[in-house]
Design a binder for these strands. Structure first.
Lengths: 340, 340
DNA sequence: GACAATCACCCAAACGTTTGGGCCAAACGT
DNA sequence: ACGTTTGGCCCAAACGTTTGGGTGATTGTC
């Protein structure tokens, strides 16, 4: 039954109306169980709570932050929010943040270092308590600077250096795809490896290559190419791979969008995906299953990754010692690798 | 040459170090061109600026907000950030916000009214200056409440009531698709219309239906069905349409994801998209062009929509009178409607 | 050389909280 | 009956800004 007072209600208004001191009201409303009974009589506590509720009192977060030197804000940097992978991770972050009374600022860096620096500064200027980076470079150079400034942070999606991170077990995911393709008899395969600075692409392709090596098959250099992470990037990279005399019988693209681009390129070359050539992706984006030729891919728990990322940061902010987490991937076999 | 002071630097620190009063420093750093010379001598101004720069002074936004009663924060509500359409709109919002020194809180409501209310409360509790809704229900019931609370806001993507909004000209877009299909000779067509509460789906399908009516063709009720906006929703809706004895020769799905679902359903029915059945979408999502059968769709300027939305809100916050904007769509003809 | 006008600043009160200390009265212990 | 504890509350000082209103020295005007 919270009435709508047009002008915002403050502690002082409550205090005046109750004939109490503002500090008393403050203590009552904080209600740390160990303090609440020391603050006022239970009758008073009741009165205060009731009025606060009726008037719809909301503490002014700026005043609180100013006083406590804690903003309950966290900054989140991602390469692009229009990438569904990062968007989904962010949804997890935001959900977990809401549950803890934290709010998030999220912003794009387009994976360009200059923007990362810029946006970090902006976010820090807003006095966030900590940060979550979804756009870490594997060399961790910039993160070193951030760490030196004493800013608490964690990484999601990509790992870097020894900083705490929550990632998918990308190496294992890469191996899973390799073992799947091996079991289908593919011996001449290629990799669309993503950007060279992202641990995701690196680990996924390394896992893939290692698994093939374990099976006694060395993947030659000309079967390996970097790419942007989007559909067009995958398309272009696959063009390069298919320009060879003998096309490979299977392609592993390190994310679904690159894989969709790869499918497009295969089509352009008159190859039927699933029959003439096998293509696998990574992430199990919702679209993967809906594509005209459903895509074999590795499911990575993106939402969960976001949640865990925020929880890791929360623990860090509480002064706890934290360590990185690697979430389990799961292979989703579909038609794009179905052909004999 | 901004040195890193580990402890945050305040106005007082600057003032003390310069032998000035904190208010003088404040005025200098505000530097409204009409006030800066009234604040201090140009020599002093120089000294102040230099030290502020050296020490890397950043005003504490909480203190500023507390004092000025303005937070330079705006709240953004979207159905789902993992929907690339909304994510892209938000990127536009965030970009424009950054340019104006505003920051944004964005949060998902999953299009459920209870969450809209909840999240609005949370965002308002953070004392945002205004809000942008990307999840408006066409009935505008909830928005009425928000307006009554005196919160300045604008709408993006969807319109509702007479509240200021920035949308694509969805009605026109719908007509464009209809005219395209008519020109290809399609006379028996169906519509996957999206959610009944979203103006986007309503306007797009109304435009489409009106254009057919203008051509003397009445689209019967069993050729029209609502759907969720995602691939699975489009798939299910198309299943319903294709369960009829005579399938239509073309389907207009009011967004690209629903269209992708429609493509999947068509495939399941043994129909070749572009040859046996034409399918068109809406939004021109980056994927549309990369699909195995590239998708005919209507390009809507999503990024720009976000930018304009923020600018509209900014003007509103400046007390200006604002009015809604409708951005021009553009038809992208591709293979999915190429067949004879 | 008297007067006002400017210049270059300083003062102090807010904005809404939080929090370490008080202080007074009633209850308690012996 | 007299000190001590406790319950129940109040005081006041911060946190870092902004901003309307000074004030004393210099400059300009005649």
């Amino acid at each position: 039954m919270s009435a709508e007072r047009s002008s915002t209600v403050t502690l002082r208004m409550l205090a005046d109306q109750l004939g109490l001191h503002v500090s008393t009201v403050s203590r009552v409303l904080h209600a740390k169980p160990d303090e609440s009974h020391r603050a006022a009589s239970s009758a008073t506590v009741e009165r205060v709570r009731k009025l606060a509720d009726e008037l719809g009192y909301r503490p002014n977060p700026h005043a609180t932050s100013l006083r406590t030197q804690r903003s309950n804000l966290v900054g989140v940097l991602v390469p692009r929010l229009s990438d569904i992978v990062l968007a989904t991770i962010y949804e997890g972050i935001e959900e977990a943040a809401g549950e803890r009374g934290l709010s998030t600022f999220v912003t794009n860096t387009s994976d360009v270092p200059e923007f990362q620096r810029d946006r970090t500064d902006m976010v820090l200027a807003r006095r966030v308590d900590g940060m979550i980076f979804g756009d870490a470079y594997v060399d961790a150079a910039f993160l070193g600077e951030v760490a030196e400034r004493g800013v608490p942070f964690v990484l999601v999606s990509r790992r870097a250096g020894d900083y705490p991170s929550v990632t998918c077990d990308d190496y294992l995911g890469g191996r899973m795809v390799a073992e799947h393709l091996l079991s289908l008899g593919h011996r001449d395969v290629a990799v669309v490896a993503g950007e060279p600075y992202a641990s995701t692409g690196i680990d996924r392709s390394t896992g893939f290559i290692d698994a093939y090596a374990d099976a006694g098959i060395e993947i030659p250099a000309h079967r390996f190419t970097h790419s942007r992470f989007d559909a067009r990037g995958g398309h272009e990279a696959t063009e390069r791979l298919l320009a060879e005399d003998e096309p490979p019988s299977a392609i592993f693209a390190v994310n679904d969008f690159a894989a969709i681009g790869a499918v497009g390129a295969a089509r352009d070359h008159g190859l039927s995906v699933g029959a003439d050539i096998a293509i696998a992706g990574f992430n199990d984006t919702p679209l993967a299953a809906e594509l005209p030729v459903p895509l074999t891919t590795v499911h990575s728990p993106m939402h969960e990754m976001g949640r865990r990322g925020l929880e890791l940061l929360a623990r860090l902010l509480h002064g706890e010692q934290v360590s990185s987490e690697r979430l389990r991937p799961e292979l989703m076999v579909r038609a794009s690798t179905a052909g004999s």
